[in-house]
């Protein structure tokens, strides 16, 4: 298999605090198309980043990024924020965020400011059943 030169280099990373949020379109997609649907995945596997943070890790809107926390790793699509919020990454509620430890049902969720590292990824977004395997 041919390797590109930049595959030997580590992708730049940026520290972020993950905050989850509800998304009505994602809820709707889950009800209408099911939680294993492409529509639900596309609206769930997302991180909204500050444009400055995106520049630091050399990604643009729609690129894939890997997010690593103490609890887990996940690949999601990056979305450029309309607002400035350096150091904060907003993710829709659901499995792709909760794999990182941002669960609303395990204490102390309400005070959680989950730290994570985010960087460019060459992996694909995992399907929901791969995010959480028993």
């Amino acid at each position: 298999m041919k390797m590109e030169f930049d595959e030997f280099l580590a992708a730049p990373e940026c520290g972020v605090v993950i905050v989850t949020y509800p998304d009505i379109f994602r809820t709707e997609a889950g009800l209408r198309h099911g939680k294993f649907s492409k529509e639900y995945q596309e609206l769930s596997a997302v991180i909204v980043l500050d444009s400055g943070d995106m520049a630091k890790i050399e990604v643009t809107d729609g690129d894939l990024v890997e997010i690593k926390s103490e609890a887990g790793v996940v690949v999601v699509r990056v979305k450029e924020s309309e607002k400035e919020h350096p150091g904060i990454g907003y993710m829709p509620e659901g499995a792709w965020a909760y794999i990182l430890g941002a669960s609303p049902v395990t204490p102390p969720a309400s005070t959680l400011a989950l730290s994570a590292k985010v960087g460019r990824s060459r992996q694909e977004i995992p399907a929901i059943e791969d995010v959480y395997r028993r």
Binding site: F36, Y98, L100, P104
Partner: peptide, 21 residues
């Protein structure tokens, strides 16, 4: 769909109208 991975070891029974994770 509300938990970090590997939080559950017990047998699981689901009573639900819809398919879920």
């Amino acid at each position: 769909n509300s938990l970090p991975a590997h939080g559950i070891n017990g047998k699981m029974i689901v009573i639900d109208p819809n398919e879920t994770l």
